[in-house]
């Protein structure tokens, strides 16, 4: 895990150089083509990533461990995206916020409901009613 960013950067940089040179082209007529920037940026990224890798190996630096709990918010986001089809985006966010408060934070039913309702009023009032953001309404919203 310590070298993952550098290894990924070298791979991504090499991919950009390859695509820039092979597919998009470096130069066209009297000016740059679509491959110019990918080649330049890719090459510089590879260069600095290799230098970083060498530094890290030399100094024996270790990366901080990634806590598996980091996946909880990501999981909550996936849940929002799944609920979105049914409840719409705002509804899904509020439902997940409620579940979060109840299941993860262990708040009471009353407090969880109160916070969720206030959050819904604020979000819906400002973004939907005032700023007219057309949120997806989901299956339930389309019936209403």
């Amino acid at each position: 895990m310590t070298y993952i960013v550098e290894i990924f950067s070298i791979a991504a940089g090499a991919f950009y150089i390859y695509m820039g040179a092979a597919k998009y082209g470096w130069w066209k007529g009297i000016s740059i083509s679509g491959g110019f920037m990918p080649i330049v940026c890719g090459a510089l990224l590879v260069l600095f990533s290799v230098l970083m890798l060498i530094t890290k190996v030399k100094t024996g630096q270790k990366a901080e461990k990634i806590d598996p709990k980091a996946l909880i918010p990501v999981g909550a986001m996936v849940l929002i995206l799944l609920f979105n089809c049914l409840l719409g985006l705002v509804g899904a966010c509020i439902a997940v916020a409620f579940l979060w408060l109840k299941l993860i934070e262990k708040y009471s039913w009353g407090k969880s409901t109160f916070v969720s309702v206030v959050l819904f009023i604020c979000v819906y009032g400002i973004f939907r009613m005032w700023l007219n953001v057309p949120f997806p309404t989901g299956l339930i919203g389309s019936f209403i």
Binding site: P73, A76, M77, I80, L81, N84, L89, V90, C93, I94, V96, A97, W100, L101, I104, E105, Y107, V115, L119, V123, F127, L131, V133, P134, F135, P136
Partner: peptide, 26 residues
């Protein structure tokens, strides 16, 4: 404990509102 789900909601709603596109949430 309350801030986390509120910020998460704002993140979803705010990123969607940028272009009205669910892809931006991804």
């Amino acid at each position: 404990g309350i801030m986390a789900p509120i910020i998460m909601t704002l993140c979803v709603v705010g990123s969607y509102a940028a272009n009205n596109n669910i892809f931006d949430v991804y």
